[in-house]
């Protein structure tokens, strides 16, 4: 997750504008690969081994996936977030504006990856959950659709979201100077979807045997889903900063880069 830092401070030479899309594309490909593999796995193992949680094969084909997720994901979280914190820029006050622009654009391009992973949790696997639970008799909290929706998709976007947050406060002066509340919401709102799973499972255990999707029990997910509206607020903040501060400092009236 590093930006090509060929724009050396004090150099008279001005690097032409170039944005590095490679990390974004790699991120998108990685998410695509993870999500499609999971989808393929469901198609392959759900009907044969996923209908009955008391079946020993359920343990083999499903619970193992679940335990693997539970081990791998926290590790990845601390690796990503820890790396970003430990390798933080300790002289952010000296960051050149041009480099800040490069980093800002890189960071926004990584928001694409975050939004893409959120798509799988909020749309693709979420609605698929309805198709599965209205088709079968639910007999465990860890069903073939939950194992991927709650314990893969959600942690994945949480890891990406927190990584982006830490990138922002350690490398981008605008976000390090003061914490942006919309950014907090964009990261923490979706994060709260995971704790909401607790309420969901509690309700399904004690109240609700039947499956329809619009039950009040599920509205916690809706509430925290709304926090993504704060993306609009984040956009407004970034636009304000870029147009009044960052861009005027690196561009002249002819539209040329000045540093």
């Amino acid at each position: 997750m590093s930006v090509v830092q060929n724009d050396v401070v004090k150099s008279e030479k001005i690097e032409p504008w170039k944005i590095n899309f490679k990390p974004m594309i790699l991120g998108l490909l990685a998410i695509t690969a993870i999500m499609l593999t999971a989808r393929w796995y469901q198609q392959w193992a759900a009907w044969d081994y996923g209908l009955d949680a008391s079946d020993p094969l359920f343990d083999v084909y499903w619970m193992k996936v679940f335990w693997a997720q539970l081990i791998i994901e926290p590790i990845l979280f601390f690796v990503f977030v820890g790396y970003l914190w430990l390798t933080r820029d300790t002289h952010l006050n000296q960051l050149s504006k041009r480099e800040e622009l490069n980093k800002m654009m890189f960071w926004i391009s990584m928001l694409v990856v975050y939004a893409f992973s959120f798509y799988f949790a909020g749309s693709f696997y979420a609605e698929q959950d309805a198709s599965w639970h209205q088709t079968v008799v639910r007999d465990t909290s860890f069903t073939p659709s939950h194992i991927f929706l709650f314990y893969m998709c959600m942690p994945v976007f949480i890891i990406i979201g927190f990584s982006l947050f830490f990138y922002a406060i350690t490398r981008l002066p605008f976000f390090a100077e003061k914490i942006s509340v919309p950014l907090l919401l964009v990261v923490c709102g979706p994060f709260m979807l995971l704790p909401t799973v607790g309420y969901n499972e509690w309700g399904h255990a004690f109240w609700l045997m039947e499956e329809y999707f619009t039950v009040p029990l599920h509205w916690g997910f809706v509430f925290f889903g709304w926090s993504i509206i704060a993306l609009g607020g984040l956009l407004v903040q970034i636009l304000g900063y870029m147009s009044s501060d960052l861009l005027p400092k690196v561009l002249n009236e002819k539209g040329e880069l000045t540093s």
Binding site: D55, V137, D139
Partner: peptide, 9 residues
């Protein structure tokens, strides 16, 4: 391995 989940009911 016959059940439809009713075993855990």
């Amino acid at each position: 391995a016959l059940a439809h989940g009713e075993r855990n009911q």
